[in-house]
Design a protein around this nucleic acid. Structure first.
Lengths: 340, 340
DNA sequence: GTCTGGCACTCGCACGGACAGAGTGCCAGG
DNA sequence: CCTGGCACTCTGTCCGTGCGAGTGCCAGAC
């Protein structure tokens, strides 16, 4: 039936117009800006149906129509063509990310890049520790009875903890301990590090056993604990754009939720590498995100995602553009981390 | 002269009232809320003088008076009594900061704490590398022709860089290199690390010389470079407080300046440990900060400041309270870093 | 059956005048 | 030198009006 076809076309036009102008869009303007081949009156009929179905709504009786969350959802699922990035954007990605000196730098650049490309708030998660593997463990005696444990993962992440130990540990024990830990944990995914501890304790020479137990405990407790995952956030200035028409009263809770991190981290934990996930308005369980949309994707080379990244913005956002940007950046970051 | 005395009292009252209510304050309200012992008419005369001297201004002909930047300056310099923290606040500081597991955690907690105590945007600088001393240098071979250099400072900061090296480096060279670097750099302030390089190169055995040169170069270039200093920012949600009366149109540039970091870092570099520095409105050279005030102080035990911390807020802020909070937190953080 | 043009209707919003309130400056008297 | 009183100014607000945008519906055309 050609009707449904055109009705969807109308919805698409409404979304596009509203996203670019931020004004409720009326039948007349629609007919002028898009050549749908029909008159405003016909469009009005279609709009009435779309409204009845819950895809659009009018803020006031005599204003134009605005897409609802449900309308955006349909748009994202069925109506938006994949928008290829411009070559300028591709070049910007390379220029921005090449030359990063360490993981912190990579993620910092990534978040700035994403914020700039999408003009939204960008969020990048550190590679999840539990999915990273141990590249190296370093032990340094920093004082009597005090060891510093440094963990370096294959994703370039470096974490350190101070471990208290008996004061009678002599200098020779440290290299021994280091060797022991590395042979036990090197290459092991951190999520599975806990399983290695019993075996390690058995094979450890008796004079080191207490030490190994203490260090392993710290390793598993404070480093593998996934709640420790970090987030880098940037581009919050973009929230204050558009003279505050979006997020008029909800800006503060949103900023709070972003700083809290825990909400966003939970959402990030659901991402898959390769599949861009879009959450629109009310679809977000958390109240502060009710008026916002998230576009997220996992990054990481190969199988499982190392972490997530994405953007947060008003429901009135350029979904195709943001999805394309997020996907492209994630892909590039994945490659970057794989080579290092 | 009793006149000047009372005039300053009036200014103090104006600042206090305006800070707490955010309404231009008139002579009548002043006479009611503070017992200055004189009538509104007399206060009006004083206010006229204060206005002529540039300490206060009226936004509209028939509105109350508002302190100018100059007025705040006088208030901060001469009129504000040091406000001791409540015991609840002291306890909050301890509760918040104790139990931090590493430097990142300490600074993260600090920024949240400051933001919460002052209800402003909080800013904490990582300990400046150039003033930190090397505690330990670690070298790990992560691949053929690729070394990972990890630097641990006495302030608990950990930085790492990848160094390319000739592919023929054998496994035995790594511990040798590590020992060499540590004996040369341990305890050395990073700002002076560059001076040690020539001596190190001379004493190094010839088969390691190339390697040592490459590693030292990376160390000095990318780690000592002070521009690399980092900032932690929190509490930006507080900017959106007060229904946006402060920072109405200037919110965005301010957020951008904060994210840019470089502006704030420059200001931070001027701090002294122990002396709280207040910069008010137009006193800030950078345009985006023109409508804001900064309260900063250096932290660090003993002589020179390791880094700075402080808050950013509207010129209409509780200076005594924020100064007290900033000072107390800095002192506590200084102790915390000294023990670790 | 479907689309189209026309028409009456409903609101929101911008404009403008009136009004009340707050605050000031000034002046004369204590 | 302070005080009470008074006239003046200005802003913010409220209300009524007119305009424009947009809709819904209906009868007629293809």
């Amino acid at each position: 039936m050609a009707h449904d076809e055109r009705r969807l076309e109308v919805l698409r036009a409404i979304v596009q117009d509203f996203v670019s102008t931020n004004d409720p869009v009326g039948s007349k303007a629609l007919a002028e800006r898009h050549d749908l081949g029909v008159s405003p009156a016909t469009i009005r009929n279609d709009m009435a149906v779309l409204e009845e179905q819950g895809y659009i709504a009018q803020p006031h009786t005599s204003a134009g129509r605005v897409p609802t969350d449900k309308g955006y959802r349909l748009f994202v699922d069925r109506l938006s063509a994949v928008k290829p990035l411009s070559s300028a954007e591709r070049r910007a990605i390379e220029r921005f990310l090449d030359g990063a000196v360490d993981l912190h730098d990579v993620l910092g650049r990534t978040v700035r890049l994403l914020a700039q490309l999408t003009r939204q708030v960008a969020v990048v998660q550190y590679p999840t520790l539990s999915r990273s593997a141990v590249r190296h463990l370093e032990v340094v005696q920093v004082a009597v009875g005090r060891l510093l444990l440094v963990l370096i993962t294959d994703t370039g992440r470096v974490e350190q903890r101070v471990v208290d130990c008996p004061p009678d540990v002599d200098a020779a024990a440290v290299p021994e301990l280091r060797a022991l830990l590395n042979s036990a944990f090197a290459g092991v995914k951190l999520g599975e590090a806990g399983d290695k501890v019993p075996g390690l304790l058995e094979t450890a020479p008796s004079h080191l056993r207490g030490l190994v137990a203490a260090v392993s405990a710290t390793l598993v407790e404070t480093l593998v604990e996934p709640s420790e995952d970090r987030l880098v956030i940037g581009g919050t200035a973009n929230l204050a754009r558009g003279s505050g028409t979006d997020f008029s009263g909800t800006l503060r809770p949103l900023l709070e939720a972003l700083e809290e991190q825990v909400v966003v981290l939970r959402l990030m934990s659901e991402v898959d590498a390769g599949t861009v996930l879009v959450r629109i308005g009310e679809e977000n369980a958390h109240e502060a995100l009710t008026g916002a949309s998230l576009v997220t994707v996992g990054y990481g080379s190969g199988d499982r995602a190392l972490g997530g990244l994405g953007v947060v913005g008003p429901t009135r956002m350029d979904y195709p553009g943001n999805m394309a940007a997020v996907r492209a950046v994630a892909r590039y970051v994945g490659h970057l981390l794989a080579e290092s």
